[in-house]
C-alpha cells in the first residue's frame, strides 16, 4: 500500500464515523425538524456568537480557573496526605475504613453542604471541587506508596537513600502510576463538580449559563453549551494523557516489554 493510501485509510478510520454521525444528525434534523434537537449546523452557527465573545472572559475563563484551582488543591493535598498515610502501616489501618466511607459519598451531595458552610462565592466552588476530587488521589496514592517493591526499597536502603531523597527518588516515582490513575479519576470528578456547583448557585460560569439558556428555552444556545462542556472534557483528557505519557513513559514501555 502506498503512503498516500495509508494516510487516506488512517484519516477515514479517525474521521469516518464522526462525520457519518454528524451527517446523520443533520439529515434527521432536516427530515424531522425538532424544537429540542436543532441541526448541528445551527448549533455551530450560534457557538461562536455565544461563547467566543464576552462570555469567554465572563463565564468560560472563571469556570476553568475554578476547576484548575480546585483540582490542583485536591492533587497536592491528596498526594501529600496519601504519602504520609501510605508510609505508615498503622496510620493506614486506622484511616482505611473512614476513607472508604468518605470516598463512597457521592461528591455532588457535598455541594449543598459546602454552600451552607462557605456561602456562594468562588471559594465555595473551589472547595467543592477539591473536596470531591481529593478521594481518588488520596486512596490511590496510599495504595501506590504502600506497594513500593520490596527489593527496590531494600536497594535504596543499602545505597543510603533516606528521608527526602528516598521520597523523591524512590517512593513518589514508584507510586506514580497509581497516583496518575487517581489524578485521572479526579479530573472527571472535578469537571462534574464544577458544572454542578455552577448550576446550583452561581452568577457566572459555563454551568450557570447553560442552565440559564435551558430555562429561557434558547435551545441552540443550550446545545452549544453542552458541546462546549464536551470539548472542555475532551481537551482536558487529551492534556492529561500528554502529561501521563511524559511522566509514565518508563512504566508503559516496561509493561510492554514484559508482556
Amino acid at each position: 500500500m502506498s503512503r498516500a493510501a495509508r494516510l487516506m485509510l488512517g484519516a477515514l478510520r479517525v474521521l469516518g464515523l464522526p462525520v457519518l454521525l454528524v451527517a446523520g444528525w443533520w439529515a434527521w434534523s432536516v427530515w424531522r425538524p425538532s424544537f429540542y434537537v436543532p441541526s448541528p449546523q445551527r448549533i455551530a452557527a450560534v457557538f461562536g456568537d455565544v461563547w467566543l465573545t464576552a462570555r469567554l472572559g465572563d463565564d468560560v475563563l472563571p469556570s476553568l480557573v475554578r476547576l484548575l484551582a480546585g483540582y490542583v488543591l485536591a492533587a497536592l493535598l491528596g498526594v501529600a496526605l496519601g504519602t504520609a498515610i501510605g508510609l505508615s502501616g498503622r496510620l493506614r489501618a486506622a484511616t482505611e475504613p473512614a476513607l472508604e466511607f468518605f470516598r463512597a459519598i457521592p461528591p455532588p451531595v457535598l455541594v449543598p453542604l459546602i454552600m451552607l458552610v462557605a456561602g456562594l462565592d468562588t471559594a465555595m466552588k473551589v472547595l467543592v471541587i477539591a473536596s470531591g476530587a481529593i478521594w481518588p488521589v488520596l486512596l490511590n496514592t496510599i495504595e501506590g506508596v504502600r506497594a513500593v517493591d520490596e527489593v527496590l526499597s531494600d536497594t535504596a536502603r543499602v545505597y543510603g537513600l533516606r528521608g527526602p531523597a528516598r521520597l523523591r527518588r524512590l517512593v513518589l516515582p514508584a507510586a506514580s502510576p497509581q497516583i496518575m490513575a487517581g489524578l485521572r479519576q479526579a479530573l472527571s470528578i472535578a469537571i462534574i463538580l464544577m458544572v454542578i456547583a455552577e448550576m446550583f448557585a452561581s452568577t457566572s460560569g459555563i454551568g450557570h449559563t447553560v442552565v440559564l439558556f435551558q430555562r429561557q428555552f434558547q435551545i441552540p444556545e443550550m446545545w452549544s453549551g453542552i458541546v462546549l462542556l464536551g470539548l472542555v472534557g475532551f481537551l482536558l483528557s487529551l492534556a492529561f494523557r500528554a502529561l501521563e505519557r511524559r511522566v509514565l513513559h518508563w512504566h508503559w514501555h516496561q509493561r510492554e516489554t514484559h508482556a
Partner: peptide, 21 residues
C-alpha cells in the same frame, strides 16, 4: 479502528453536561 476516535471523543464528555437536555 473505525469507532476508536468516536469513543475517545464521547467518553470524557461529563455526563452532567446533559442535565439541561
Amino acid at each position: 479502528a473505525a469507532t476508536a476516535s468516536t469513543v475517545e471523543f464521547l467518553r470524557p464528555i461529563p455526563s452532567v453536561a446533559l442535565i439541561p437536555l
